[in-house]
Design a binder for these strands. Structure first.
Length: 436
RNA sequence: GCGGAUGUAGCUCAGCUGGUUAGAGCGCUGGAUUGUGGCUCCGGAGGCCGUGGGUUCAAAUCCCAUCAUUCGCCCCA
């Protein structure tokens, strides 16, 4: 019985050509965040299991995480998201950090999920957080950042929609406006979250069952529907329109619109699960019918630091997964074709290995990434290997070239050949490399 | 956890209702061509037909089980 060559279920191997895409994605993430003045951090992939147990979500931890006991008897869990970790880190140094904090990270996260399209058990997630700003400027900046990331990958605004909602507004609607108790509100939140996925009749039936007779009599159901059906803030019922949350959403939307972010909509059914979000939430949707779903999102979660005995700190953040992003790029034809990290492949002709190594060294000293073929195969085999590796240039080194100091360099994508001295060739390759 | 689909060469798959030594395309490899890839031609390697059991004179093919892959449901921090 031989060993399986498969990676463990739900996890990916990154062969060099896969890794090139991954590096491309990470590079864009870093580039945009650093342009916004964000600093990168990281932390251990293992956290104490307690960190995820805080909010009574024991089922999630026992059934949907990689958790185990280490040799010292400590219960540990592989991180499933970065938010608890970054909250822990900020809480630990809360007194000495220079606020506001603009932090980002690209952690690998693990969730023990059932497999389906776009969802594995391991993924990388860009995590962006802005700590210490109470007002809308934080939401403005974070959504701008998320939009800029999409733009950096070449996405057009017609390809995705940014949906906005306010948890505070929803809370008010459910508890005060409709008069639901906490249990009803929680159930209804989940129901609304799944609304888009079910038949309208089914949704209405479940809605009906949820209300008490007196609430039904008071017209709670039609009230709720009049809220959920709204797609513009101006269309909200008058009692809601005068709420502060609505004014904030409206102000935020016009600030973002001024920056050209035209693909914003208010969506009262947007819930983002039932987690730590406390105020404005947003979610980015793929507009392509073939892939029409939520890609990523975020929002304000002001309360998390209190878990560590620290005072609450205002935070707005978002997380974006590499797999969903890659799906988006693929759906919209935005995947770049990426060359190898190696620029030049030296094809040796005849027994010139020693001399060719010296040429390679010179090229490397001049700053090129160079691989050399010393297999002694015929040139056509060597060229094929270079093409297969995705290397852009093949440089021929044989007796003739060594004697003259003039080397033939072939562009393997265009089949153009040029013959020059080493320095000239180096600048040719560098010119190509520095193109955007 | 529930339901569907699929497991045959490195990859994509064919192999009808059981019948000799299991096939194709692509890829790999050698040559035509010991100094130049993609085109062409010729050769070669590579398979416990996912695994275990059953039915049968005979199983890649039929039955059962099991494992794996995959899609959907539930869930999704």
């Amino acid at each position: 019985m031989s060993l399986s060559t498969q990676p463990i279920k739900g996890a990916r191997d990154f062969y060099p050509e896969d890794m090139r895409l991954e590096k491309y994605i990470f590079a864009k993430w870093r580039e945009v965040n650093e342009r916004f003045g964000y600093e990168e951090y990281d932390a251990p992939i293992l956290e104490p299991t307690d960190l995820y147990l805080s909010k009574g979500n024991e089922e999630i931890v026992t059934e949907q995480t990689y958790s185990f006991e280490d040799r010292g008897g400590r219960k540990v869990t592989m991180r499933t998201e970065m938010t608890p970790t970054v909250s822990r880190m900020v809480a630990a140094r809360r007194q000495e950090l220079a606020y506001p904090l603009r932090w980002y990270s690209i952690p690998q996260c693990w969730r023990y999920e059932r497999m389906q399209r776009g969802r594995g058990r391991e993924f990388y997630q860009l995590n962006v957080d802005l700590f210490g700003i109470e007002g809308l400027q934080a939401e403005y900046e974070i959504i701008n950042n998320a939009d800029a990331v999409m733009q950096a990958f070449g996405a057009e605004r017609s390809m995705y929609t940014i949906k906005l909602n306010s948890r505070k507004l929803v809370d008010f609607v459910l508890k005060d406006w409709l008069g639901l108790d906490a249990t009803q509100a929680a159930t209804l939140t989940k129901l609304i979250d799944r609304m888009a996925k079910m038949e309208r009749g089914e949704f209405l039936g479940k809605l009906e069952a949820l209300f008490s007779p007196s609430q039904r009599e008071a017209g709670a159901q039609s009230q709720l529907q009049s809220f959920l059906e709204v797609s513009k803030l101006e269309a909200l019922p008058d009692e809601l329109k005068k709420r502060k949350e609505v004014a904030e959403l409206s102000a935020l939307m016009s600030m973002l619109a001024e920056d050209g972010i035209s693909n914003l909509v208010f969506d009262p059914s947007l819930m983002r699960g039932f987690d730590y979000y406390t105020d404005i939430v947003f979610e980015v949707f793929d507009n392509d019918p073939a892939n029409n779903r939520s890609m990523f999102g975020g929002g304000r979660y002001d309360g998390l630091l209190t878990l560590f005995g620290a005072e609450a700190l205002p935070v707005v953040g978002y997380g974006m997964g590499d797999i969903t992003l890659a799906n988006f790029l693929e759906t919209h034809g935005l995947l770049p074709s990426l060359d190898s990290e190696t620029s030049v492949y030296i094809v040796t002709i005849g027994s010139v290995e020693r001399e060719a190594q010296k040429v390679a060294k010179q090229l490397r000293d001049m700053g090129l990434d160079v691989a050399i073929d010393t297999t002694g195969r015929k040139p056509d085999k060597q060229i094929k290997a270079a093409v297969k590796k995705g290397i852009r240039y093949a440089m021929f080194v044989g007796e003739k070239e060594l004697a003259s100091g003039q080397f033939v360099m072939r562009d393997l994508q265009t089949s153009q050949e040029e013959t020059h001295g080493l320095e000239r060739l180096v600048s040719l390759v560098k010119d190509y490399r520095s193109r955007p």
